[in-house]
């Protein structure tokens, strides 16, 4: 059964991509530096490619080896970005950008989710939080700034 962490976002600076996508990338970078393989689950291929682009544009010193579903070596890179839940989950952490409750949650050691700043998305995140709590998972929340600070510190 995974530990679940929700990262909370305030209304931040307007930017091209939602702030929690970037937070997801920072989490992936952090995990990858600890050699913990993760899956970033997106709601669409388009979103997956946007996340891929964000990771590729990280400064060279914070390079994160990653792949999209359908490319890369057979076992995948330390960070894999998908838009469909894998048939056989085998990674340490699931980073959930899909906005849904993913399948096979219990197969991961850790699950990362997000409470975005956007009202509608925030509401949906609250419902996931409640559902996870009802299912008896151990939950914690963190301000999004904690991960970005850690990355930059």
């Amino acid at each position: 059964m995974p530990n679940i962490t929700f990262y909370l976002h305030d209304q931040g600076e307007p930017s091209d991509v939602p702030a929690h996508w970037l937070t997801a990338c920072h989490v992936a970078a952090e995990l990858s530096s600890k050699r913990q393989w993760c899956l970033v689950l997106c709601e669409s291929q388009q979103q997956a490619e946007a996340v891929d682009e964000l990771l590729w544009q990280f400064p060279a010193e914070r390079f994160v080896a990653h792949n999209l579903s359908g490319e890369g070596p057979a076992k995948g890179a330390p960070v894999e970005i998908a838009w469909q839940a894998p048939a056989r989950p085998n990674r340490h952490t699931l980073i959930n950008l899909s906005g849904q409750i993913p399948a096979d949650v219990e197969r991961y050691r850790q699950l990362i989710d997000f409470v975005p700043a956007d009202e509608a998305a925030k509401q949906s995140a609250r419902e996931r939080y409640k559902a996870f709590r009802a299912a008896g998972y151990s939950l914690e929340t963190q301000p999004a700034s904690s991960i970005t600070e850690k990355q930059h510190g």
Partner: peptide, 25 residues
């Protein structure tokens, strides 16, 4: 060559190239 993205050693290559704007699109 996707090894530039998918392998850890991609970092050494990226850090060695001039800082061009990076895209995968």
């Amino acid at each position: 060559d996707n090894r530039l993205i998918t392998r850890d050693y991609g970092k050494t290559f990226v850090a060695s190239l001039p800082p061009m704007h990076r895209t995968r699109t």
